[in-house]
Amino acid sequence: MKRKQIIAALGGIGIAVCAVFLLSADHIDAPEVAGTKSDIADFFAFEGDNPNNTVFIATVQGPLASGQQTTNAVFDEDVVIEFNIDNTGDFVEDLVIQAIKRGDSMYFFGPAAPAETGLESTINTFAARTAVKISTGEEVEVTTDNSLKVYAGPRRDPFYFDFNRFNLVVSGQVAPEGFLPPGEASDFFQDLNVLSVAVEVPNSMLGTAPVHVAVAAELLPPGSLPNAYNVWVSTKRRIN
């Protein structure tokens, strides 16, 4: 595989804190990439079943119609999905895990130090490589290799949102406080799918998580926050 220069298309940002579940959602509302194969829907980061591991999940191309599996919605071989990890607290990626499709498989590289930071990246083919066959709705493939556990394929969209009610609120057809309580709300995404990429990695491969200081010290005194990696996901498209 050749090293390829690529440029960022979209990024979702968040902080992963030990024992805390992180979700960042952004469905089809980024003008430059909405409806494309580089459009990020969700980003998750959380502690694994093994508390010494961290799980990263990115979903793209959502929402897809129920039953629309990889036959009609496929990962793009010109788009790399990149999990970025800052372990020094300066909000610049120190390590990246890169995932890119080749044939019927998703290849993962890293975690490793990036060749460059920011909008441009180079696929780090010199880093440890792990691959998994892309799953379909009927066949689920998970690979454990090089201390990583990885998956790529369609999954039910995990986002919960009463989108129809939201449209009524923003259009002024109901009052701003007119959202329904959970027992009455309708989950627009219940039967919709996304394409997902998941990787579980030992924290020992991510370095030491930086210390975070609470903004409101009177509410969270010094030392009350656990060390945490700053993490975000981006998609980047090949330009040459």
Score class of each variant (00 low, 15 high):
Lys4Tyr: 05
Met205Ile: 01
Phe46Gly: 04
Ile85Asn: 05
Glu138Trp: 03
Tyr151Thr: 10
Ser147Gln: 12
Phe75Glu: 07
Pro176Gln: 08
Thr70Ile: 15
Asn193Met: 15
Leu220His: 06
Ala34Trp: 00
Val20Asp: 10
Val142His: 04
Thr125Val: 15
Ser224Pro: 00
Ser38Lys: 10
Asp78Ala: 15
Lys4Thr: 12
Ala228His: 01
Lys37Pro: 02
Ile28Arg: 15
Glu93Trp: 01
Leu22Tyr: 00
Ser171Cys: 09
Lys4Asp: 01
Phe161Ala: 11
Lys149Asn: 10
Leu22Cys: 09
Thr235Asn: 04
Asn230Ile: 06
Asn164Gly: 12
Asp76Gln: 10
Gly183Met: 05
Gly207Met: 04
Leu23Met: 13
Trp232Tyr: 11
Pro182Gly: 08
Phe166Gly: 05
Asp90Leu: 13
Gly103Arg: 09
Tyr107Lys: 12
Ala99Pro: 01
Thr143Gly: 03
Leu195Phe: 02
Ile7Asn: 09
Asn240Phe: 11
Pro114Glu: 04
Glu141Asn: 15
Asn53Ser: 14
Val215Gly: 01
Pro182Met: 07
Thr208His: 03
Asn164Met: 13
Ala9Val: 10
Asp94Ala: 09
Tyr229Glu: 02
Val211Asp: 03
Met1Glu: 09
Val211Pro: 01
Val169Met: 13
Val140His: 04
Leu64Cys: 07
Thr59Asp: 12
Gln98Val: 13
Ala45Tyr: 01
Leu10Thr: 08
Val201Phe: 02
Asn193Ser: 13
Gln5Phe: 12
Val60Lys: 08
Arg237Glu: 11
Thr136Gly: 15
Leu225Cys: 02
Ala175Lys: 10
Pro158Glu: 09
Gly118Asn: 06
Thr36Tyr: 03
